[in-house]
Design a protein around this nucleic acid. Sequence first.
RNA 1: GGAGGAGUGGCGGAGCGGUCGAUCGCGCCGGUCUUGAAAACCGGAGAUGGGUAACCAUCCGUGGGUUCGAAUCCCACCUCCUCCGCCA
Length: 432
Amino acid sequence: MLDIKLIRQEPETVRTALRHRGDDPGKVDRLLEMDAAFRNLQARIDTLRQERNTKSKAIGAIRTGKAAGDADALQAEVRTLGETLTSLEGELAQNQHARLDPAEGLLYQIPNIPDASVPVGNSEDDNVEVRRWGTPPTFTHAAEPHEEIGERLGLLATEEATRLAGSRFVLLKGQGARLERALLNFMLDLHLAHGYTEILPPTLANADTLTANGNLPKFHDQLFQVTGWPLYLIPTAEVPLTNMARGQIMDADQLPMHLTAGTSCFRSEAGAAGRDTKGMIRVHEFRKVELVKLVAPEEGITALEGMVADAERVLQTLGLPYRVVRLCTADLGFNSAITYDLEVWFPSQGRYREISSCSLCTDFQTRRGQTRFRDGETLRHPYSLNGSGVAVGRCLAAILENGLQGDGTVRVPDALVPYMGGLSVLGQARAV
RNA sequence: GGAGGAGUGGCGGAGCGGUCGAUCGCGCCGGUCUUGAAAACCGGAGAUGGGUAACCAUCCGUGGGUUCGAAUCCCACCUCCUCCGCCA
């Protein structure tokens, strides 16, 4: 959430931000109107409460013989006061709900302000490519979709996955299962070397945690909920990682905090019917190595560049061609002020597909989660960042497609060979 | 699942209807002393909201209730701990 004080002081800044996102700038004015009403109401209530406190204390003094006066008369006055207060407090509660309820409050419906450096745009078509790394492979043979390679080499068993759980699930077996595990370990080890602390969090989270992260209530239909329990399967490890410091006041020397976790991620993919129905691109359960940072605000931009570089290092070390894209204002996530996407090359599709998204969320999430740190005499909200480093399933798919060789086998990237027990080729060569 | 116990400021721990935002100890910050540090002594310091400010209001796990007045009484819920049972 944004700082209400910022909205009061610079409403035009916020209106502009909403316009650039294709959102309704009128939200600002509706919120300010409610805010003015709130402050008026709060002042009246405070005055009445002060009167009640004073008189109640006077009654106490009289009853204990420390002062003289008519306690009964005062008591009657305070009782009337109390009735007025109850009614005003009801009004205040309504106002608070309208502004600050996590589900419906207007303040929670205003997204983060895009950084000045973010390109203004109307759709994802206005995203800006920043750089490319590597060259898409030129095959003398035909490119093949990863799910076909996987099935053919016995790495992937879609039919079994469907029997067990349904569509949009993946079952890896043999070398395929080992490759997934190798990738997960490889990525985590790399990020440990980058200075991150490894976390293995619960993959279920409660409603408070998901609300603090903005997944609830808005994106309720994107989540899997556990029947009979107030718990949800996490859609990303960002959820537990960013919530670890929720409600805490940290010492300045606890920053920067760099965390990484490799977990399963669960997504209902509601509304994605018909898109990426085959293979491992869009599934209900997948593994992802997540990167999260909490840093002093001054370090925000540097921390983001560093995080993008850490994610890029994964793809570079695996030799996968990719490009870095800067999201425009229209494509930016609700929490984010700046986002870089990493997109890896898929030969069978002849295009780059998202494999990582790294965002600087400024103090937008930490304010909502009341995460703070001591900076000398004052308390401040650190900046939070999150990024994938990277999505494991999509990475495995990219390795299959980019590493496909003329004989039908797949070359294992050198960096993974030690993790594969020395195996450097997946599958048996086709008879020629 | 059964039976008990407990939730108070960064931590420990008092208070159990009337200036209690809360005694005290540790830790923290400033000062005195010291070449410097430690010790000792003196002083300071919670969070949120409103207000230019003085100041005011709210917060003692959460939510209700009783009362002129609640950290203190009542109800519900949540969390943690101990013992028993079960268990990867």
